[in-house]
Design a protein around this nucleic acid. Structure first.
Length: 293
DNA sequence: AAAGCGGGGGC
DNA sequence: GCCCCAGCTTT
């Protein structure tokens, strides 16, 4: 949950998740849709599928006790494997997250692009060379905490930093400009319409295809094109939503669907059921706008 | 090696 | 509006 997601954003999800799945075994036997429903709104949903796969592997074969075995679990990369290996097992692996990359870039006063693999590997090797092999878990958490509380992205607090005397960027006055991160894909603006079709207290939802690149299996509100013969009524308003580099402006319209056969991939959903299915955040926002949620 | 993947909070 | 977050997987 913490991969690329702030701690404060994770906590409520984490608590609900552990209440429902208190053990690896409980998670291992879960349905994917229920896991995704609990993850809905947190983003990066492949993390949830990966966690489920990893739980099944662990339930079957036990928890790996070294970096290599951890690294082989779904959703566990170099950082996560190092974090677990060092914090849980005391093994000497530097855990290099975004915070640590920033600390290294500044201490070394290195303006290489941390978005590319060469510098990332180099910075990782530097962090590894700094590691206190007697206390790898404490060292890693101290490095990350330094980045999270002192060596801040925009506003480095060099005045209270224990590394200031050793920091080349502080000496050169370049700390606030580091690290360098280039290459952002150009944003794309998209306008789209979502329909809120209601019938006897329920709302028509559309399931995203299994082959969809983003959020397969999630439930969305339909667009007019998804419902042959749909008619749009009054507007509930508009809202903006950004997914990676796509900037959507959604207009939410009340709609009516022809009586009879349900369009393929669609279902009626009562408000009580919204909690139990993987609901997209755009659908969630639109339903709130329409007063359904 | 680079692109894609969610969503929210801080500035 | 842009940046960044206890990154990973796929192309």
């Amino acid at each position: 949950m913490l991969q690329q997601t702030r701690v404060e954003a994770v906590i409520p999800y984490y608590e609900r998740f552990l209440e429902r799945f208190p053990t690896v075994q409980a998670l291992a036997v879960a349905e994917e849709d229920e896991v995704l429903a609990l993850w809905s709104g947190l983003g990066y949903y492949s993390r949830a599928r990966n966690l489920l796969h990893a739980a099944r592997a662990i339930a079957a074969g036990g928890l790996p006790r070294n970096h290599e075995g951890l690294r082989a679990l779904a959703g566990v990369g170099d950082y996560t494997a190092a974090a677990i290996a060092s914090i849980a097992f005391g093994l000497p692996h530097a855990a290099v997250d975004g915070n640590v990359l920033r600390v290294v870039a500044r201490v070394e006063n290195d303006a290489s692009d941390i978005g590319t693999s060469g510098p990332r590997r180099r910075f990782g090797e530097i962090a590894q060379s700094w590691l206190d092999v007697r206390h790898p878990g404490l060292f890693n958490q101290a490095m990350m905490e330094l980045g999270a509380t002192v060596c801040l992205p925009k506003d480095p607090r060099c005045g209270v930093c224990p590394l200031a005397a050793a920091c080349r960027a502080h000496r050169e006055g370049t700390a606030a400009q580091l690290p360098v991160k280039l290459r952002k894909t150009a944003p794309v603006a998209i306008e789209a319409v979502l329909l809120v079709v209601r019938n006897r207290g329920r709302v028509l939802l559309r399931r995203r295809e299994d082959s969809a690149r983003r959020m397969p299996g999630f439930w969305d509100l339909p667009a007019p094109a998804d419902i042959p013969g749909a008619r749009a009524g009054k507007s509930h308003g508009t809202f903006r939503h950004t997914i990676t580099h796509y900037h959507y402006t959604f207009t939410v319209l009340a709609g009516t669907a022809p009586r009879g056969l349900l369009p393929a991939g669609c279902r009626w959903c009562s408000s009580a059921q919204f909690q139990e299915i993987p609901l997209s955040t755009t659908a969630c926002k639109a339903l709130k706008l329409a007063g359904v949620l």
